[in-house]
């Protein structure tokens, strides 16, 4: 669907056509930023990853060969940059195991919508990184199974397993939170 128009826009963007550049940015930056935000739970870092992703994209455009969808390639670059940052975070805190953020609501807190959203965001951010990526790509961004698997460089079966574990953890965590409220 967007494949051929992607190629046309990529070709024009590579030549510096401002309209094509803006079209690519408008079309793909929300998905890239959203993925990075969910993965990193940090808006500033997510914006840095988005910028780095697009800088790499601009460099790649002149030699772009449509072996994969541009969207898939772009999200894979972004995801790998997120993995790099998460690894550096772990390395900067040697000996510390990643804690699950406490997304449960305190008893006095009402379960209003914004609190639910924050609790889910925190719970997704606290998932192991590949589970978080699988959930974000499939459940939040609506990528097809094949696309999400390609972005993550895993089989669809492995993706399904990651999703099952992510949803189970999220459900348990959120259920626990609502019961304690």
């Amino acid at each position: 669907m967007a494949f051929s128009s992607d190629l046309d826009q990529i070709t024009r963007a590579a030549a510096g056509d401002p309209a094509a550049v803006r079209a690519l940015v408008n079309r793909y930056s929300p998905g890239v930023l959203s993925l990075a935000t969910r993965m990193l739970s940090d808006r500033g870092e997510a914006e840095d990853v988005t910028q780095e992703t697009f800088i790499r994209a601009w460099k790649a455009l002149p030699d772009w060969e449509p072996r994969a969808k541009f969207s898939t390639w772009l999200h894979r670059v972004a995801l790998n940059l997120c993995y790099d940052r998460l690894r550096k975070r772990r390395e900067s805190l040697p000996g510390e195991l990643p804690d699950l953020a406490d997304t449960r609501l305190a008893p006095h807190e009402a379960l209003d919508q914004s609190q639910r959203v924050r609790a889910i965001e925190a719970a997704i951010g606290a998932l192991p990184e590949r589970q978080s990526a699988a959930l974000t790509l499939c459940a939040l961004q609506g990528h097809s199974q094949a696309e999400a698997a390609e972005i993550m460089d895993v089989s669809v079966e492995a993706l399904e397993s990651l999703l099952a574990r992510a949803r189970r953890t999220l459900r348990a965590h959120l259920l626990e939170g609502s019961q304690s409220a």
């Binding site: 401002p18 550049v21 803006r22 940015v25 930056s29 929300p30 988005t50 910028q51 697009f54 601009w58």
Partner: peptide
């Protein structure tokens, strides 16, 4: 119900400015 994460105008302009 999770809200969309949308780029700010400043980020969009920075991305456009970094293009060829």
């Amino acid at each position: 119900r999770m809200p969309d994460v949308l780029p700010s105008a400043a980020l969009t302009e920075a991305l456009v400015a970094s293009a060829p």
